[in-house]
Nucleic acid binder design. Structure first.
Ligand code: ZN
Ligand code: ZN
Ligand code: ZN
Ligand code: ZN
Lengths: 310, 310
DNA sequence: GAAAGAGGTCACTAGGTCAA
DNA sequence: TTGACCTAGTGACCTCTTTC
């Protein structure tokens, strides 16, 4: 998990610590608010292997592919993956990776086209404003546009990577998530209207980042899942049978099937800015509760519960 | 890359400790000064299950969890735990472990974010300079920062040295537990001005290590409890009436019955809404964020909160 | 150039070991 | 049982390459 949770702070620091590159004095740019990792909901650091993920899931996926790992779930192949337990079941973590669309074929290189970014940001802002997503998706924001834009970023890029990745590519079932991609992607139409010509301003990103932080997710469906002609898909027998995840929304989440969505938004408000004490406690309480009893999703916290979680 | 900071440093050194590198120059890496074990005040070797602990307490906690041990105190459940008597009362040792925040959900893997390290170091240095702790904590130093950042990981010290250092104040009554947690987190404001940009320098660590040693504690509350796997639970329900501690993960954690925390609540009010899945996810995300990088929240953990999240 | 992601690096920790 | 030691991973950072 990247520390960066974000916020400004994080960003600034980033600069500060040279790490970020350009560091030279120039303000390091704010990074695009990718939202939550689609695999474990930690803070995503970018689009990795096709979807927004954290560094951990990125690395995990990479290692899995490289070593052609075959994991086995000791439970029911239905472990919920989140930042706290992601290392407890590799099988399910990997499944989640592929279900969400990670694939070596999904790799995108180079900078994200301005147009795409703008659209994504705009979309996010709107969502934020409304506080609700059309589809009732939970964490309101998501950059559909961005995700779908895949097409934008060249697809053919593969060849380039091939070399580097070859070892890798083979493996990935690269497709399992078709569904995802299909339903998920908002159609991306680039009407290159110049409007956007202006550049995306930092402020916007800033704002989004702040209200965003890891609390929100931007779901970037795997847009790359294209018929991969290249992959040989050799023996990749993953048990990807699981397409069962029927997401009715365009943004598949890591929620179990029984998961039901409904609109809500009360939270969206919370979503903004820093959390005050109460909110903090609230969240912690819930988190604790969840930690101990993840079963009831439809939770109502009452006194008892509050006591419960202490 | 900062190699500067990171060099090799293999484990060997860790153990060997003694050498501590300095001799060589930057070469051997110093491990971060984790300070004292939060359970027994021995030298901590790292952040284990969420907090800085020694190898002994780490192993003890692990075994306790694995075997689902239920210990009983033959006294008043108030035994003071320190390096010399930690094996006298398992019940109290385990209680201390959990009180201090050890939890399977608090596990942090991977490298400790630079930022966190920097903060911790800075804080430690300041404390050292002042020579006083805000909370009147007994052993002067502690890496609150580190601790608070929970998510972050703390730093490590070269453990090894127990020998050398403990002698000193070693024993420290390790603090009346409860309070500990209370200590506040120093607010973290990053002005990481360039200074930090560089990597943390060895000298700093060196200095801190020396003045540190077992005398210090780094408090890392574990507040990132997140939901476990969704699984079916079933079987492993220990008889613990204590639902609070039923983890359906493979590492069930059990706290002693007598374990008390206190109410807190504040939440109740907020706590009342009904959460739907989406909200839930949202909350989880926030929790994740908090867990990972609480820094940016202007949160300051007070006793209540600390206790609360436990 | 700047922005982004793949890959690589290696600081770190859960767990397993086994002498004491 | 304990806890010093090791090992297999994990993931925070960084470098390199691609794309805008
Ligand atoms: Zn992730
Ligand atoms: Zn599983
Ligand atoms: Zn200890
Ligand atoms: Zn006792």
């Amino acid at each position: 998990m990247v520390d960066g949770n974000d916020e400004i702070i994080a960003n600034e620091q980033r600069d500060s610590d040279l790490s970020q590159k350009s560091s030279k004095g120039k303000r390091s740019r704010l990074t695009f608010p990718f939202g939550a990792c689609r695999v474990c909901s930690d803070s995503a650091t970018g689009i990795h292997y096709g979807i927004a993920t954290c560094e951990g899931c990125k690395g995990f996926f990479k290692r899995s592919i490289l070593r052609k790992e075959k994991y086995r779930c000791y439970f029911d192949n239905a472990c919920l993956i989140n930042v706290a337990n992601r290392n407890r079941c590799k099988a399910c973590r990997f499944r989640q990776c592929t279900n969400q669309g990670m694939s070596v074929d999904g790799v995108k290189m180079g900078r994200i086209p301005k147009l795409v970014k703008e659209r994504a940001l705009k979309e996010l802002q709107e969502q934020k404003t409304k506080g609700t997503t059309s589809n009732g998706e939970i964490n309101g924001m998501q950059a559909n546009t961005l995700s779908c834009s895949s097409s934008d970023r060249s697809i053919d890029n593969d060849d380039s990577n091939t070399m580097e990745t070859d070892s890798i590519e083979a493996q990935v079932p690269s497709v399992p998530m078709q569904d995802d991609s299909s339903n998920t992607c908002a159609k991306f139409e680039v009407e290159i209207n110049s409007s956007s010509s202006g550049s995306i301003d930092d402020h916007q990103i800033d704002v989004l980042n702040s209200s965003f932080n890891s609390t929100v997710e931007s779901h970037l469906p795997a847009y790359n899942s294209l018929p991969d002609m290249k992959s040989k898909t050799s023996a990749n027998d993953r048990e990807d049978e699981i397409k069962q995840f029927t997401y009715r929304t365009k943004y598949p989440t890591f929620l179990p099937n029984d998961f039901t969505v409904d609109e809500t938004d009360g939270l969206s408000q919370l979503a903004t800015g820093l959390l005050n004490n109460e909110e903090l406690q609230y969240v912690k309480a819930i988190a604790n509760k969840l930690g101990r009893n993840s079963l009831n999703l439809d939770t109502r916290l009452n006194d008892e519960e509050a006591r419960f979680i202490r």
